[in-house]
Design a protein around this nucleic acid. Structure first.
Lengths: 348, 348
DNA sequence: GGATTTTATGGTAGCGCTACCAACTGGCTG
DNA sequence: CAGCCAGTTGGTAGCGCTACCATAAAATCC
């Protein structure tokens, strides 16, 4: 209005190529911008006639909503940050996969973050992703920085904690009881008649869920009167190679071992493949039980006995819980025990 | 301005809990909001004194920038969508991991999308992530919808295409030459004296990069005067199980096979483990060569000969290229051949 | 020492969208 | 037929931030 020199010709500045905006669509359809917004977001509040005109205009102009602007105006950007400890551990990948597939189908996008098992990094990562006004958050485990817990609790949007089951949780929780899972395998090994049973893990200082499984293992053995000081661990990340090496260390230190309870299938696979190579018979010379249920376990010789966890399904379930809340419903059960299954195969 | 009844007390609406804004920080520090913005984004344009006051105010209020608002104002949200075909294929995961680690270190976040090898889905996914005003994009392969190519080309922000090397590319390119990689393994098998060589893949209609490797394979055999109609494939997704099954099919159909060139390590591992189980000797009864260089290959018996590709490094390289452009520099080389290495082990 | 450049800060106006409220329509009631 | 309601549509005012420009202060010049 009475503005003389600015506005060279069209839009004022930046924004890369001038994208099609909601006003362009409105003009094309001969309606107000707000009507376009409604036609797209709450179609049933717009008459069929206008809705059609708007849809046509959208199609003919190739309009793509600027979710950033929408997010600023209404808060909530249809982004769901998923925070996991590591992207080099297959378990988390499969969970993320389940999450991603479920959310993408509902029009949400996954923002990926990894913490390297460090709660400080988790806290700052969450601070920073909060800057995207996400619609909800999925994070790993129940242990977090106080600041993180407080910030998410007062936030007022859905939060799902995965992998681990327990209280207190910030909002919703999908996972398994790691102590029980560890106990389950230990009990199985006992039932099979093994007595000199080692637990073999790596990176357990950082991955406290593996510690919990060891705790379950320890309790079961203790209850059976077996002192379970047979813990072999190192601080390297989990890998076939780590499994191989720690397995050999354990054998060297305790040649009388009857069975090994591995913290996860990667370690077990590394060890089992090494046993194959050296002609160590499994389970005759030494039995092996593990945790996870990676498909590799079924293809090894002998097939690996494992406590298997439906990882993909855990992701799907977490995403579903989140979506339910985003759609305004209250999940009947905000805490889902995804369960585990003892899969007895040939290695024990 | 003479506004009587609205504004109950504080801020007008929503936005969950009233977050600390840049104005709050400005008030606390006794400066203008724009100065806070500068102190945070371009610290060297603010005097040390004010910068310190601002930093203190930020810390004491716990201010976290609203990247959405920043993105709207300036375009560019420090989000990098990474679009891959699948999250159930380890290769892509490792690339994503490299990308994520590199970008996160520079303050960018990865927005994850998967297309299931479908270019239509890729196109609509890209449309939708463009709604986040990303700072750049990383996508898989060089083949895309025309619309995708055009939209990204006129977009004016950095785009990296990964996995595959060639022309034309939209902007920047990091990958390997799949035809050469396929040829490399075929040549190796020939050099070893094998003649009846099958190529074994799955899902090759969708994964045209595997087709390219087969093409390289075919060319080498043809040049040696060998008709290579020995292609065994199915349309299932790649897995150990698929490798096992197709391997058995191939053996049944052509008991005289001397060597198999697998499209990837997962298939090869499934086959090799099955061979172990059945007492089929590798490479005496049948040789196996593969592609990828998964760590599993080193732990199998026999160790797997493979053309290995530095997947993590490919991700790192792609992210670096992107960052360089985001920081206003022009990469000396916008096309990086990440290369592959023939790792000869025991299976051939 | 006055004119010019450089540097540091602030004011203003949106980025594109949607929450909120106002207005308008047509149908129905009494 | 005035009065009222439900159903639609539109106007306006920001969401929190930064690009742009103006201004003030300091540094540099001839």
């Amino acid at each position: 209005m009475a503005n003389e020199k600015p506005l060279p010709q069209g839009r004022r500045r930046h924004q890369g190529v001038n994208r099609v905006t909601i006003s362009d669509v409105a003009k094309e359809a001969g309606v107000a911008p707000i009507t376009v917004s409604r036609a797209l977001n709450t179609p049933d509040r717009v008459s069929a006639k206008l809705r059609k005109r708007v849809d046509q205009a959208v199609a003919s102009l190739g309009y793509v909503p600027n979710l950033i602007a929408g997010g600023l105006a209404s808060a909530g950007t249809r982004v769901i940050p998923v925070v996991v400890p590591s992207l080099s551990i297959l378990t988390f990948i499969e969970v993320v996969h389940g999450i991603q597939q479920t959310l993408e189908g509902a029009g949400y996008q996954v923002l990926l973050g990894s913490t390297d098992f460090d709660l400080d990094r988790e806290a700052s990562l969450i601070d920073s992703v909060m800057g995207y006004s996400p619609s909800g958050v999925i994070l790993t485990g129940l242990r977090h920085h106080d600041r993180t817990v407080h910030r998410l609790q007062t936030w007022g949007r859905p939060v799902v904690e995965i992998m681990e089951l327990g209280t207190p949780c910030i909002d919703m929780n999908v996972g398994i009881d790691n102590i029980q899972a560890g106990a389950c395998m230990a009990q199985h090994l006992l039932d099979r008649g093994y007595r000199r049973i080692a637990f073999l893990g790596v990176g357990m200082t950082r991955d406290y869920r593996a510690q919990q499984r060891f705790e379950g293992h320890r309790q079961v053995l203790a209850a059976a009167g077996i002192e379970s000081n047979l813990l072999f661990a190192s601080e390297e990340p989990s890998s076939y190679e780590a499994g191989r090496r720690v397995f050999l260390e354990a054998l060297a230190a305790r040649p009388d071992l009857e069975a090994i309870h591995f913290a996860n299938d990667n370690l077990a696979a590394g060890a089992l493949l090494e046993a194959n190579r050296r002609g160590i018979r499994v389970p005759e010379d030494i039995a092996m039980g593990s945790y996870l249920g990676l498909s590799l376990g079924e293809h090894l010789t002998p097939r690996l006995t494992t406590v298997s966890v439906p990882r993909f399904e855990m992701g799907v379930e977490a995403a579903k819980l989140l979506l339910e809340r985003l759609q305004g419903r209250t999940p009947s059960q905000p805490r889902v025990d995804i369960g585990y299954r003892l899969t007895v195969r040939e290695s024990t």
